[in-house]
């Protein structure tokens, strides 16, 4: 990243394989993340975006899935080689996670206050009173009204939006350098989603925490990301500054995805579509994994996987046909 030679997280060639399969489902994912930066990983179901997040947190479903190759260096340590104990010292401490449905990640049997205080005491030598004070401070920080009362409430007593705020409070309680949020607003109504996205932006400005936000929603990407990585069938196909990817989309999958989103403006004919389906995990095609659905594919595309190569400042694309205009005749406008 410009002005920051040393990323807090450097992922290199990260690959994930499921037991009994001969191919990597997530294949050679690489990206850097600078302090305070927001990277959105966007893609459709099964593209490997959530698996990538789980792998970074050391939470891959065991023993079904394992990291088959690659490194992920976070604050100088390779997360791939750390043992479970070292990983649990980092998790919830230097690196925290926010999930889509807070009800499944909050313990229904304990109060919000107890759960945040417990997260603090797991990593810091503080007494109960100090941990509770920290929990109260965090609820205040995430703009939960009447934090003193909320401390003693159970997760089911909170609305979906308030639970997600509590989850964010817990994630931030130990001043992490990195938060990984997997579809944090997908289960929320749109007016509540707007509140939570605004909260995330405000907190990031206040704390300088780096954020990896996993989402399927291009609107959420446009509103939160500094940089965006587009994943398709286990690979990053395009990556770059958010303005570059939206204004100058290069990979045919990125273009097709953006063109398929209905506009909020006046209707302009039928929606564009991407033909066909995502390949099944057990039958990933050779070469470019998008080739079978790509209207621009040529025979060479199925021969070898294209490398993620620079096409503009900080903007990379894995397509041998990029930029498209130099290979495809443009239709008369």
């Amino acid at each position: 990243m410009p002005g920051d030679p040393k990323p807090i997280l450097a992922v290199e060639g990260l690959s994930i394989r499921f037991r009994g399969q001969s191919q990597d489902l997530v294949d050679g994912v690489s990206f850097d993340l600078a302090a305070g930066e927001t990277l959105c990983i966007v893609g459709e179901s099964g593209c490997g975006k959530s698996l990538t997040a789980l792998a970074l947190m050391g939470l891959l479903p065991q023993p079904a899935a394992r990291i088959s190759a690659g490194r992920a260096v976070f604050e100088g340590r390779d997360l791939v080689t750390l043992d479970a104990e070292a990983m649990s010292d980092i998790r919830g401490n230097r690196m925290a996670m926010v999930f889509q449905e807070p009800m499944t990640s909050l313990n229904p049997a304990f109060t919000i206050g107890d759960q945040i205080a417990e997260a603090v005491r797991r990593h810091r030598p503080v007494d109960r009173a100090a941990a509770r004070a920290r929990a109260r401070e965090m609820l205040d920080r995430v703009r939960i009204p009447a934090p003193d009362a909320r401390l003693d409430e159970y997760p089911h007593q909170l609305s979906g939006g308030m639970r997600q705020r509590a989850m964010i409070a817990m994630a931030l309680a130990n001043d992490p350098a990195l938060i990984i949020a997997d579809e944090p607003t997908t289960a929320l109504d749109v007016t509540i989603q707007a509140q939570i996205l605004r909260l995330i932006r405000q907190l990031q400005a206040e704390t300088g925490t780096a954020l990896i936000l996993i989402t399927h929603d291009l609107g959420v990407v446009a509103e939160t990301a500094d940089r965006v990585a587009v994943m398709y069938a286990g690979r990053i196909v395009e990556e770059g500054p958010v303005a570059a990817v939206f204004d100058d989309p290069q990979h045919p999958y990125t273009i097709g995805l953006m063109a398929s989103v209905p506009s909020l403006g006046r209707r302009a004919g039928r929606l564009q579509t991407i033909p066909g389906l995502v390949p099944a995990p057990e039958a990933m095609p050779a070469g470019c994994r998008f080739a079978a659905r790509c209207p621009f594919a040529e025979p060479a595309c199925t021969a070898a996987a294209p490398a993620l190569a620079a096409i503009g400042p900080g903007h990379r694309v894995a397509c041998r046909r990029a930029p498209l205009e130099s290979h495809v005749a443009e239709a008369a406008a």
């Binding site: 953006m258 443009e330 239709a331």
Partner: peptide, 21 residues
Amino acid sequence: TLAPGLTSGAARRFGLWRAAR
């Protein structure tokens, strides 16, 4: 502003996609 692809770069690529499809 609520529609994607308003910039000339994106509009051009969407045009290529539409033509190819």
